[in-house]
C-alpha cells in the first residue's frame, strides 16, 4: 500500500514551525517510513501531485497568494491542521491589523527609519501578491480540522498529532503539549 502523503506550507509565518518539524530529531526517519511528503518546502515540491492525507499550515493569510495556497490545500488534503499561533490567531503579523494598510506601506517603503527609496514609490508590480486589509487566521478563510497553538508548538506536539492521525487514533494531547507560547 502506498504511504499516505503529507503536505506543508508556510503562509504568513516565519518558518519557525517548519523548523520545529525538523526538531523531532531522529524521529524524522520514522516519519519518512510512515509518510511521503508532497507539496512542501521540506522537499521543494511546488505543486500537488495528488490527494494528501494531512496538510500542515504554518502562518495566517496576509495576502491573496496565501489565500489561494490555503484554498488549494483545502482542496487537496483530507485533514488540514493549523500549526502555530500565526495560523490559529494571526500571530505577530496580525499586529498590523489595527493599522490602516496605507500607513503600513508608508512605514515599509517611505518613512520608516531604515528606508532608502529615492523614487518615493510603493512597489506595485503585478507579480507581487496584493496585501489583504488585515491578516486572517486560517480558520477565518477555510475550514480547518485541527488547531495546534504554540510559538512554535513543541516538536512533541506535532509528532504526537501526526502519529495519532496516521494511525487512525483520536488526537488526545497531554496538558503539557498544548501551550500558546
Amino acid at each position: 500500500m502506498a504511504k499516505p502523503k503529507v503536505a506543508t506550507a508556510s503562509l504568513a509565518g516565519c518558518f519557525g514551525c517548519h523548523m520545529t518539524v525538523l526538531d523531532i530529531d531522529d524521529r524524522i526517519l520514522k516519519l519518512i517510513e510512515l509518510v511521503d511528503f508532497d507539496k512542501s518546502p521540506i522537499d521543494d515540491i511546488k505543486h500537488f501531485t495528488g490527494r494528501c492525507a494531512v496538510g500542515l499550515i504554518e502562518g495566517g493569510c496576509c495576502n491573496e497568494e496565501n489565500v489561494h495556497t490555503l484554498q488549494d490545500f483545502r482542496k487537496h488534503c483530507d485533514v488540514l491542521i493549523s500549526v502555530g499561533d500565526c495560523a490559529t490567531m494571526g500571530g505577530i503579523p496580525a499586529m498590523r491589523n489595527g493599522i490602516p494598510l496605507e500607513e503600513c506601506y508608508a512605514e515599509a517603503y517611505l518613512v520608516g527609519p531604515s528606508v532608502h527609496n529615492p523614487s518615493g514609490r510603493i512597489p506595485n508590480d503585478p507579480e507581487l501578491p496584493l496585501l489583504l486589509d488585515k491578516v486572517y487566521p486560517c480558520q477565518e478563510v477555510v475550514k480547518m480540522d485541527y488547531h495546534i497553538p504554540g510559538c512554535p508548538p513543541s516538536a512533541d506536539t506535532i509528532w504526537e498529532t501526526l502519529v495519532a492521525l496516521l494511525s487512525n487514533k483520536t488526537v488526545d494531547l497531554p496538558y503539557e503539549l498544548i501551550k500558546y507560547d
Binding site: 493549523s82 500571530g91 477565518e140 495546534i148 510559538c151 501551550k179 507560547d181
Partner: peptide, 29 residues
Amino acid sequence: YCMFCEKSGNCELQAQGYRYGMTAPRYPF
C-alpha cells in the same frame, strides 16, 4: 499575543485556556 507576553506561563487567562482545552477560538478575532 502569548508568544511575547511577559505574563505567559503565569497568566490566569492562558491557564484557563489550557485547562479547558482551547486550541483556537471559534469566534472571529
